[in-house]
Simulated assay, not measured.
Amino acid sequence: MLATLIDTFPSGLNAKRKIKALQQRLPGDYHTVELDTCYIRYRMAGSGKHTLVLATDPPISLECYDELIGILAKDYRVIVFELPGFGYSLPKIGFDFRFDNTIEILIQLLKHWNCGPYVLSFPCAAAYFSIALAERFPQWVSHLALIQAPNWQQEQLWKHRLDPKSILNTPIMGQVFLKLGKRKVARQWVEYASNTPPFTQHSQALIDKQLHHGGCYCLASAMQKSLTPESPALSGFTQPAIMVYGQQDSSHKKTDFETIRDYNPSIETCAIDKAGHFPELETPQLFKNYLDKLIYASN
């Protein structure tokens, strides 16, 4: 509890004031909704038959999605949101980052938008939230387009490769470490994981601006409380699904992405050779091609 307070207490104290100021200077397709234990910032565009919901991959911010939204909004209603505790999705004081608590927040969010059933496209560690939503609330989820996601055990190995000394995974130490150096950590992570220099440079500037102006990067709390060694109950789902991944992701060189089929043997894995950790943003048209195939083939 004390460790997560390091993340939630400062932002929670002035969250309402910060959100109000933010809304006054953002374009019209940016929105913020207040939920029980946090605020969620999102963008909405397009008016297609299918509603596609993308979660940002921290520290990537909503501002990094202009090109992808422009491509997708021609055929889909597109919603992109920042996960609680990241960017300007500010946690309230005492927000608990546990997996099931985040699921409760996400189902509140889907009900708030009220335009399901949804095509959920969540990346990396957030992909397991979408799997759980598909299992527990099938009426709200029509398809899954997972990104950069193996099974839970492979994700644990990935986590420990990135943090071999368990700095981020140690309560209090991890939170303090990121408080002191979140802008540097974010910049280095994008540099390491992306394989597309123009995207890397463009997104680094946008992320650094957000973090400099009070954006959250509660990575330590999320890793400690949500991405735990013990897997949540993920028994499997039946909706049509793909998993898109970039083959040039330096952080996932040893990951077996085929293990994602543990949750649904019918998942089609779609490798993008030139992309790194952010294939939907590094190669947006290829990502849309795979998404179109998923939606139209299943219909």
Rank of each mutant, 00 (worst) to 15 (best):
L83H: 14
P84Q: 11
F86C: 00
S89H: 11
L90N: 02
K92N: 12
G94W: 10
D96K: 13
F97S: 05
R98F: 04
F99N: 04
I103E: 04
I105R: 12
I105S: 14
L106P: 03
C115I: 07
G116H: 10
V119R: 04
L120M: 05
L120P: 01
F122E: 00
C124P: 00
A125M: 04
A126S: 13
A127V: 00
F129M: 12
F129R: 09
F129K: 09
S130F: 08
A134C: 03
A134V: 04
E135W: 03
E135I: 03
F137Q: 02
Q139K: 14
V141H: 09
L144Y: 10
I147Q: 14
A149W: 13
P150S: 11
N151S: 12
Q153S: 13
Q153E: 14
E155S: 13
L157M: 10
W158V: 11
K159T: 09
R161E: 10
L162Q: 08
L168A: 11
N169R: 14
I172N: 07
Q175P: 05
K182F: 02
K184H: 13
V185A: 10
Q188S: 12
Q188G: 01
T196P: 00
P198N: 06
P198I: 07
H202E: 14
S203E: 05
I207D: 03
H213Y: 13
